[in-house]
Amino acid sequence: MGEPVWWSAMRKQAGRILVLLCLYLPLGCIQAAPLAVTVVLSEHGGPYQEFSDALREKLIKKNIYLDIVDEADEVNPGQGMVVAVGMKAAAAVAGSGARAILNVLVPETGHEKLLRDHPQRAASKAYSAIFLDQPTERQVRLIAAMLPGKRQVGVLFDSFSPDELAELKQRMAMHGLSLHEHKIGADFPLHIALQHILDNSEVLLALPDAAIYNSSTIRNILLASYRSGDPVIGFSPAYVKAGALAAVFTTPAQIAEQTARFIQQYGETRTLPSAQHPQLFEIAVNEQVGRSLGLAVRSAEELVQEISAIAGDAR
């Protein structure tokens, strides 16, 4: 006589049930069902993997059921929450039936584009993002703290709105800095706009604008700036490795930490905080470049502390 079907299924799941019981029992059987969170990665490996590993670590011992999937996979979050990592994943899940979505490792402009493409999400209190972009204030403070003698800040742009530039100008003015901006385009190819900026500025602030800063242009931008004696302030550690003086950025692990807090809030309130810049940040400094430019280089730790203290940011 064969085993009953239910018994067979039970036996197959026995190990899993046993471990679940061991874990849940000490916490009390009255605890609510775990929150299901699906993490959708745009790509496997690299910073995406670093983010998911860090998030998993942060959510250990929390009552959360984490499912990490590929963007190409079919996502079926049910009543749970989706964390979309990168633009490909964010674009894929924005159009899905997911109720609560948090976009991470996305640029601010990317999130805005998704809201334009999916207007129904705009009103949702469960659609949010943690941008990769740093708040303007933080970048301006880095320049002010790091280069106290330099007042003329150059910015090259292609797709910034007048509002964004106006805000940048205003923030700089508050720190005694002057903005020299130059738009690139058919009339002003990059090398001409760059030379114009370098002629009129003492420091070049690189802002995420892929038409200007990419792997085919970075070499000439850094060489030309170095020749002019103008340090470059970048927005990722890759810039610092290549030859920028410094960069303020947020690591995937730091975004994971902020994400964990978002998830917990969602678990408690079923709403997500509004889309925002990353709270945590790091600063990388290329001391060799700084020294070569004859600058008094301060340590990254000192700068993080100073900027955090002024801005009230968390470290």
Binding site: M87, L105, V106, P107, N214, S215, L223, A238, A242
Partner: peptide, 14 residues
């Protein structure tokens, strides 16, 4: 719009 601006690696220039 891509996050590659933030995530891409660069060779050592200087």
């Amino acid at each position: 719009v891509s996050e590659q601006s933030f995530l891409q690696d660069f060779p050592v220039v200087l």
